[in-house]
């Protein structure tokens, strides 16, 4: 437990919006270094809340969260976060946005890595959705980043862009030796990337099932094994409702 990357002990979160809305209920979870964890659940099940707690953007109402054995009290440069909307500053160019978190000398390098080299001087509102996501990814991937927290990174993208970005995420995870926690409601996204899937119940979110996926990369959606896993995950997801 001490060695876990993240350790969550009986986390609950309720929001007060006139009435109390429970978002997470007694979630306990250990996340190990190097994992690509996908938290799978329907919209509004508290997945994003969990991710925000890991980032240090939100505090749990009760329970404890640890990062490398230390309680999380706020954001940390080791934990990069990709918001669902790219949240690039509209008054800064793509290059300046990437430069917000990276030293000037590595902006060019990051831009090339994410296919943005020709777009550095554009403003975010001139980018396509996929480009904006990649720029946001470049901003989140600082030198210090050891963990990447991904909030529905592949939603609202067309099929081609989604596939490209998915490969990008896979490459980043593999090559940089990062640990990834991704939140999604899409079973196929989960199957394409995760080596561990955590199925959440609807609100308030609770862990329904914690599954290690024994499938080789790159994932082949036509392989017999993949299809079997897909069936299982879908069955469990339905049961969780």
């Amino acid at each position: 437990m001490e060695q876990s990357l993240f350790f969550l002990n009986q986390i609950s979160k309720t929001y007060n919006q006139g009435q109390t809305v429970p978002a997470l209920n007694l979630v306990s979870l250990g996340i190990e270094e190097g994992e690509f964890i996908v938290i799978l659940g329907p919209s509004g099940c508290g997945k994003t809340t969990l991710l925000r707690i890991l980032a240090g953007l939100t505090n749990p109402s009760t329970g404890e969260v640890f990062y490398r054995g230390k309680p999380i009290s706020g954001p940390d440069s080791e934990r990069g976060y990709l918001f669902q909307d790219p949240r690039l500053f509209p008054w800064l160019t793509v290059g300046e946005n990437i430069g917000l978190t990276n030293p000037p000398e590595s902006v060019q390098f990051l831009a090339e890595k994410f296919g943005l080299a020709n777009f550095l001087n554009l403003y975010p509102q001139q980018l396509s959705g996929g480009m904006a996501k990649r720029a946001a990814l470049a901003r989140a991937l600082t030198n210090e980043a050891k963990v990447l927290l991904l909030d529905e990174p592949l939603s609202n993208l067309d099929w081609f862009t989604k596939r490209e970005l998915q490969q990008e995420l896979f490459r980043v995870w593999r090559e940089e030796g990062l640990s990834c926690v991704m939140v999604t409601h899409d079973v196929d996204e989960a199957l394409d990337l995760a080596n561990r899937i955590i199925i959440f119940t609807p609100r308030p979110g609770q862990i329904y099932k914690d599954v290690k996926l024994e499938l080789d990369y790159p994932r082949d959606s036509l392989a017999q094994e993949y299809i079997i896993w897909r069936e299982r995950i879908i069955t469990w997801s339905m049961e969780a409702r």
Binding site: P75, F83, R87, F89, L100
Partner: peptide
């Protein structure tokens, strides 16, 4: 507030928040 959260996430010092977020925004 989404942009303020970006500033908080990356722990901008106040001067950077002023120059990169508050003034241009």
């Amino acid at each position: 507030k989404e942009y303020w959260e970006v500033a908080r996430l990356y722990q901008f010092p106040w001067s950077k928040t002023l120059v990169k977020l508050v003034l241009p925004g």
